[in-house]
């Protein structure tokens, strides 16, 4: 299993030369000069701003407050109509951005922290502790996560966002850990790590300052992937009624839409906008990851191929 564990992502990032072309801005600068990643980052920035300025964009004391008649179609007063309970969908959408993004980014960050610790440790220390950590990683990886999360949430009555973060994080770190482990294995045998060891650097220094910086793009893409997974899974759990339906998130708006037969009553404004928002955030994250992939593996870039062809055609 281990020899085949190198996915496309880990196979790509051993090439370290992009660091030269990244210039002074580092990974971030390289990302923003990649068109796909720049679009993705733009969309994410937009939603982060919406989340921060929610009280300015849609001033309200409580987004769950009843402000209109049930299932009003979009109008000037309610730009995205109202729900069955007469709540303003636009207001809910704006405020829902907060919890949705917060849960997504917090979970993604906890997941990547666990993945980095377990992945690099098991890649760097060989022997039986690696065997045990890899076994643990592979077992967690192969046990289907969503059913397990659903069953756990079924036993906890109406878990809040923080509980969802904890449950999600404790089950979803395995993919990242495995990718990072195989990359650590490759880097461990390189000359600069050997040199650091010979000069007597302590292990934690080697891991933090020699190995980790060489996996920046891999860690970044695993982090983005974890955030995407968290956003989608959170929405899914809330949609099937396993979250706290009184906390406004994009997932709970969809839960209420489904429970109030929004499909049957043609109240499209209650279920199209939150889904579009989730999909936009998801798509933005996917775009950023395409960008990271293209930066760390120049072969995957399409722009260059097209330019070459154009140049040939011009001759």
């Amino acid at each position: 299993m281990d020899n085949a564990a190198t996915s496309s992502a880990s196979a790509s990032s051993t090439r370290r030369f992009p660091r030269l072309s990244w210039g002074r801005l580092g990974l971030l600068g390289a990302l923003l000069s990649n068109r796909k990643a720049a679009i993705g980052a733009g969309i994410i920035t937009f939603f982060v701003l919406v989340a921060i300025f929610a009280p300015v964009i849609a001033p309200t004391k409580d987004p769950n407050r009843m402000v209109g008649r049930p299932h009003e179609a979009p109008s000037l007063e309610h730009p995205l109509g109202t729900t069955r309970q007469g709540q303003d969908v636009f207001t809910q959408l704006v405020w829902g951005t907060r919890v949705t993004l917060l849960v997504g980014f917090v979970t993604g960050s906890v997941v990547i922290l666990i993945a980095v610790i377990i992945g690099i440790t098991s890649g760097y220390v060989s022997g039986w502790s690696d065997e045990i950590l890899s076994l643990l990683t592979n077992v967690v990886l192969v046990i289907p996560a969503l059913p397990l999360i659903i069953v756990i949430s079924g036993f906890i009555d109406r878990p809040g966002p923080m509980t969802i973060v904890l449950v999600l994080a404790s089950i979803s770190w395995a993919y990242g850990a495995r990718v990072l482990r195989s990359q650590t294995l490759t880097i461990r045998h390189s000359d600069f790590v050997a040199a650091a060891r010979v000069t007597g650097e302590p292990t934690w220094r080697i891991v933090l300052f020699e190995i980790l910086p060489n996996m920046t793009s891999l860690v970044a893409s695993a982090w983005i992937g974890a955030v995407l997974y968290a956003v989608l899974t959170e929405a899914t759990l809330e949609f099937i009624g396993l979250g706290n339906p009184n906390i406004v998130t994009w997932g709970t708006i969809l839960y209420w839409a489904q429970n109030n037969a929004a499909l049957m009553t043609n109240a499209w404004w209650t279920f199209i906008p939150p889904g579009v928002c989730i999909a936009l955030v998801g798509f933005a994250l996917v775009l950023i990851n395409y960008g990271i992939d293209e930066i760390s593996n120049p072969r995957l870039r399409t722009d260059r191929v097209q330019k070459k062809k154009k140049a040939k055609a011009a001759v």
Binding site: F239, G275, I278, G282
Partner: peptide, 17 residues
């Protein structure tokens, strides 16, 4: 890639609708 970023259940709802 865009479809992959959709929440499954939402795509299912849209298809159903």
């Amino acid at each position: 890639g865009l479809f992959g970023a959709f929440p499954y259940f939402w795509l299912a709802m849209i298809m159903l609708y």
